[in-house]
């Protein structure tokens, strides 16, 4: 869900510094866009597989985009990447 994101922890994950005075504005924008992304929840997948765009030759497997670090679980409560307040 888009609500309740700890934007400071998300900045840490993304290795970005956002000035304190811009935090409210950037949080608003992130939440607004994530709500739009949530529209994908209504999409029923059927038998469609991600691999069916294989006719596009891609440089990098789509699953391996984060080449800078291993993928982290934002839901985990014991790591530094728990970006939720709750």
């Amino acid at each position: 869900m888009a609500k309740g994101i700890d934007i400071k922890k998300l900045c840490e994950l993304a290795k970005l510094e956002i000035p304190e005075q811009n935090m409210t504005e950037i949080s608003r924008k992130v939440e607004e866009v994530l709500l739009m992304f949530d529209k994908l929840d209504d999409f029923t997948t059927g038998d469609s597989k991600a691999s069916s765009i294989d006719d596009l030759k891609l440089e990098m497997a789509l699953e391996n985009l984060r080449d800078d670090k291993s993928r982290l679980d934002l839901n985990s409560s014991d790591g530094p990447w728990n970006i939720f307040n709750a």
Partner: peptide, 24 residues
């Protein structure tokens, strides 16, 4: 920020994998 969020493990399936299926 948005890209880091959708690629994170807890949300990869919810957003990124689904987006690829829509694309397909």
């Amino acid at each position: 920020l948005l890209g880091s969020y959708v690629l994170s493990a807890g949300y990869f399936g919810k957003y990124y994998a689904k987006a690829q299926k829509v694309r397909s």
